[in-house]
Simulated scan of single mutants.
Amino acid sequence: MPAPSSRAELFLGLISGTSADGIDAALVRFHGDGPHARPELLHGRTHGWDAALRARLVALGQQAQALTLDAVGELDVRIGRAFADAANASIAAAGIDRTAIAAIGSHGQTLRHRPQGEAPFTLQLGDAHVIAERCGLPVVADFRRRDVAAGGHGAPLVPAFHAAVLHAADEDRAVLNLGGIANLTLLPAHGDVRGFDTGPANGLMDAWCLRHTGQPFDAGGRFAAQGRVDPALLARLLAEPWFALAPPKSTGRDQFHLDWVEAALAGGESPADVQATLLALTVRTVADALHATQPATSRVIVCGGGVHNPLLMAALADAMPAATIESSALHGLDPDFVEAMAFAWLAREHLAGRPGNLPAVTGAAGPRVLGALYPA
Rank of each mutant, 00 (worst) to 15 (best):
L10N: 04
R54T: 07
F11G: 01
V286A: 03
L346G: 01
V300D: 04
A364P: 01
P271G: 14
T185E: 08
A64E: 11
A26D: 05
A87Y: 01
R194D: 06
G154K: 02
L41A: 04
R38P: 07
T99K: 15
A352W: 08
A26C: 14
D70N: 07
L351S: 02
G152E: 09
R236A: 14
L330K: 10
A150I: 02
N202H: 09
L123H: 07
P335M: 06
A87N: 15
A344H: 03
S6Y: 07
L42A: 06
A82W: 00
A84T: 03
A102W: 00
V165R: 02
R222I: 07
D206P: 07
D230E: 11
M1I: 13
G227C: 12
Q62I: 09
G371W: 00
L281T: 01
A64F: 13
G305N: 05
V72F: 08
T18M: 07
N177T: 11
G61N: 12
G126D: 13
A92K: 14
W242E: 07
F83P: 02
L10R: 04
A322C: 11
A169L: 08
A342Q: 06
A272V: 06
A263C: 09
G17D: 13
V175H: 00
D50C: 14
D273M: 10
E349T: 04
A93L: 13
E171G: 08
P156G: 05
A224L: 05
S5V: 12
A289H: 00
F217P: 01
Q109Y: 04
F243P: 05
H167A: 06
S328K: 03
T285I: 06
A342D: 14
G203D: 11
H107W: 02
A319K: 11
E171M: 14
H257W: 07
D218C: 08
E269C: 11
L312Q: 03
D288A: 13
F337L: 10
V283P: 00
A150E: 12
L69E: 13
A287F: 00
G363D: 11
P39T: 09
G17P: 02
V148H: 01
H43E: 07
G332K: 12
G363E: 08
G366D: 13
N177M: 10
A246D: 15
G353F: 03
A174Y: 00
L12I: 08
V130W: 00
C135D: 08
T18D: 08
A266F: 14
A163K: 03
V158I: 09
S5C: 15
D127A: 07
A164F: 02
C135Q: 06
Q226W: 08
H153G: 15
D24H: 05
W49H: 06
S16A: 15
N357P: 04
L137N: 04
P4N: 09
